[in-house]
Every structure is written in structure tokens, then in C-alpha cells.
């Protein structure tokens, strides 16, 4: 019987078959159970010997069943895993990846750099009045300095802001020093577009006002920015220049190593300087008109402004600024940023 059982167990191909064998031999009506029952008629010596034999058989069958069950389970798992196999090289669901416009990316990066230095980001209107865009910034009517900004005029006498600088005065009208702000935003220049000129682009303006603020602080802020943008080897140079709303006025250059060519050069990145007393006065006059106290009489400050698209063009080697607002996905998706 043992041989027979073992042969059947070895041949069993599934857990169900194994169960059937188990029942047939070990179940209540199983052959082994019957054999135990049949011992009743034997004498004690024989019964003892028979009992021991049957127990040995029972144990052997149980062991064989267990071993076979384990074998079958392993095989079934292997089969299941094989059935569930997938081609993981297949493309996934085409989820929309999303991404920022490259101008936004650079602006965000700049804003983040200045936030670390304690600046807050504020924004202002794009349709401006002549007062905030020019007069309050010490750019009187009929002054040749106005030629520095080719302007889009509105039929109602307003204009599209030519720089983010009007926010200097707007912010000072409503806030008291000390403070540090940056102003990201769109600006407009009335000029024919070509590879390096766009009528619409983005600027970041900076303004820090308080007691005892010097050109050295400006240089410190710009150096911090330059290093954050271009690494530890970045340097900053100030060169005299002219913007009516700062005095002294400078242009700042940053030593930049082109990652694609490894070549270094000085980039003219933007304009800056110490806030002109006429700008403080314009802000105070406006405050006074609004019933607010004059608070810009004993402070100094610096301001700076830089173009955003140019940084992107240099960083990525974009040859033509006209790509920026075409919003072609072929362009937009080239600048992923986590």
C-alpha cells in the first residue's frame, strides 16, 4: 500500500490531485484508516506490530504528501509568475508632463536667489502712466534720456511700461524703509523684432532701501546672484553708466564661463546704481499727497535691473529671441526643470 501511495503522490500534478490521494488513503474512509480499523480482530502482539507498521506507513505517506505539496506550490507560484510576466519596456500611459516657460524658469531662479538674501517679490501693472514710468524716475519730458526707452503708447495717454522700475516708486509710495524687494515682470519696447530684440520681454528689478546702504552692498548682492547663477568662479564688475533714476549709475558685468565651450567672458547683464534723490523725493511727494508721512529723506538705497531672456539665451544657446513667445511645444519642452 505504501508503494502504491508513494507512486500516486509522486505522480500527483496539482494540489487537488494531492488532496484526493490524501482522502483516499488517510480520510475517514481511507484505505489506511480502514486498515487501522481492521486491526480490531488481531491479538495484542500482532496488533502492536501491525499498528507500528501502519503508523510508519501513515507517517511516510504524510511526509510524502507534505513534500509533494511544497513542490507543487513552488511550481504553481513559478507558473503564476510566468503568467503575470509583462513587457516592462512598453511605453507607459501618455500623461501630460507639463512645464514652465523658460522665461518663468529663469525668473523663478532669480527670485529664489534674492529671497535667500531676504528680498520679497512683488509685481505691478503693465499699463503704466507717464508719471511712474518716466517723470518719477527723473526722466523729464523732452529729455534726450527718454530716447533710451522706445515706448508703446496707448491711445488714452498711458503706456506699456518700458521697464519694471516704475514699481520702485509704486512700492515706496505704499511702504516704509527699510526693505528689499525684487520685481519680476513683463516689459515692452517699441522696436522692430529680430534675433536679439523683442518688443516684449521680462525683467527683474531690485530695490533695497534703508539707512547706510552703499554701492558695496549692491556689489555684494550682485556677486551673490552671479555665483548662484554661474558658480563660484563668477565675478562682478561695475562700470560707470547712466540711468536717470540712479546716481551714481553703473552697468554690471558678470564673468561667465560658457558651459558648452568652456570659454569665459564678461557679460553686460544689467544696469544698477544708488537710488537718485529725485526718485526718493517723487515717492515722498506722492506719499504726502496721499496723507502719508515722508520717510525717504534720510535713507539711501540701490536699485538694479536685468533682462531675463538674455540669461536663458546664453545658458541654453538659444540663437533667436523670437522663439520665446511662439510657444511651440518643440521649444517649450527643451527646458525641463525639476
Amino acid at each position: 500500500m505504501l508503494e502504491e501511495a508513494l507512486a500516486e503522490i509522486r505522480a500527483a500534478a496539482s494540489l487537488e490531485a494531492l488532496q484526493e490521494i490524501k482522502v483516499r488513503f488517510l480520510g475517514k474512509k481511507g484505505r489506511l484508516t480502514q486498515a487501522f480499523k481492521a486491526m480490531k480482530g488481531l491479538d495484542s502482539e500482532e496488533r502492536k506490530a501491525r499498528g507500528q507498521e501502519l503508523n510508519r506507513i501513515k507517517q511516510a505517506i504524510e511526509k510524502a504528501l507534505e513534500e509533494r505539496e511544497a513542490e507543487i506550490r513552488v511550481a504553481e507560484l513559478a507558473a503564476k509568475l510566468e503568467r503575470e510576466r509583462e513587457d516592462v519596456s512598453l511605453p507607459g500611459l501618455a500623461l501630460p508632463p507639463g512645464g514652465y516657460h523658460v522665461s518663468t524658469q529663469i525668473l523663478d531662479e532669480l527670485v529664489e536667489i534674492f529671497r535667500h538674501m531676504g528680498y520679497q517679490a512683488v509685481t505691478g501693472p503693465e499699463v503704466e502712466d507717464e508719471f511712474h514710468n518716466f517723470d518719477a524716475l527723473n526722466i523729464p519730458p523732452h529729455h534726450p534720456a527718454r530716447d533710451m526707452w522706445d515706448t508703446f503708447w496707448l491711445e488714452d495717454g498711458h503706456l506699456l511700461r518700458t521697464h519694471t522700475s516704475p514699481m520702485q516708486v509704486r512700492y515706496m509710495e505704499a511702504h516704509t524703509p527699510p526693505f528689499q524687494i525684487v520685481v519680476p515682470g513683463k516689459v515692452y519696447r517699441h522696436e522692430a523684432t529680430d534675433a536679439t530684440h523683442e518688443a516684449m520681454f521680462h525683467q527683474l528689478e531690485g530695490l533695497a532701501v534703508g539707512e547706510g546702504i552703499t554701492l558695496a552692498h549692491l556689489k555684494g548682492a550682485l556677486l551673490t546672484m552671479a555665483r548662484a547663477l554661474y558658480g563660484e568662479k563668477a565675478k562682478v564688475r561695475l562700470q560707470p553708466s547712466f540711468f536717470p533714476f540712479v546716481e551714481p549709475g553703473v552697468e554690471f558685468l558678470v564673468w561667465w564661463t560658457n558651459p558648452r565651450t568652456g570659454e569665459g567672458s564678461w557679460l553686460e547683464l544689467g544696469g544698477a546704481g544708488m537710488v537718485h534723490p529725485a526718485v526718493f523725493k517723487a515717492a515722498d511727494d506722492a506719499r504726502e499727497k496721499a496723507g502719508l508721512p515722508r520717510v525717504y529723506e534720510n535713507v539711501t538705497g540701490f536699485a538694479f535691473g536685468l533682462g531675463v531672456e538674455r540669461i536663458a539665451m546664453l545658458r541654453y544657446g538659444i540663437p533667436d529671441i523670437r522663439y520665446f513667445y511662439s510657444n511651440r511645444l518643440a521649444f517649450l519642452r527643451q527646458f525641463p526643470r525639476p
Binding site: G118, Q120, H175, P178, A208, A216, H217, K219, G220
Partner: peptide, 14 residues
């Protein structure tokens, strides 16, 4: 012109 850090405590209305 040296390079100096600027740290300030903004006026409350900022």
C-alpha cells in the same frame, strides 16, 4: 568698491 553683505529687518508694513 568692496563687496559687502546687506542684512536688514524690514519695516513692519513690508
Amino acid at each position: 568698491v568692496p563687496t559687502e553683505p546687506l542684512a536688514l529687518i524690514p519695516a513692519p508694513d513690508n
